[in-house]
Amino acid sequence: MSNNRVSRRQFLNYTLTGVGGFMAAGMLLPMVRFAIDPVLQTKAEGDFVQTSQKVADLTEEPVRVDFSYEQVDAWYKSEVTDTAWVYKQGDQVIALSPVCKHLGCTVNWAGDSAHPDQFFCACHGGRYEKTGKNIPGTPPTGPLDEYEVAEQDGLVMLGKKIANTLV
């Protein structure tokens, strides 16, 4: 037997702490797991959206592709429409977001007749090269975003918006 014998009072204190801890854990565990669920939820990766654009019809000239998909935000489902500028470079299909990096207006391919091989934003005259690289001296601060691209049944599939990988 050790000399530090646990006194009756100490024993009761420890037991009280233990039972209290059990009650707190029993109450809080389900609640905390409930609250942090979004962090632990695994999303289906690579959710691609089918567009009506045939890959075979693509050329090196960017075309405007409108597409829409159902966005599921827990119990709230909504139809989201979006646009991309799609073209072929060699065998690779490239899809760029039309959202100007200056203030979010919409860019157009060859929108400015003085620059027929560039994207042009009518709002403040921002221009981008075909790769989406912003032309220095125009308002945008970065290159156009890019979409992840896949192909299915000969149609272009668009995925997440990612930072431009061509520049």
Partner: peptide
């Protein structure tokens, strides 16, 4: 971010 927004990408219902 996810704890506050309830979703990794959407600022919405949750």
């Amino acid at each position: 971010k996810i704890l506050l927004a309830g979703d990794a990408t959407i600022i919405g219902a949750q």
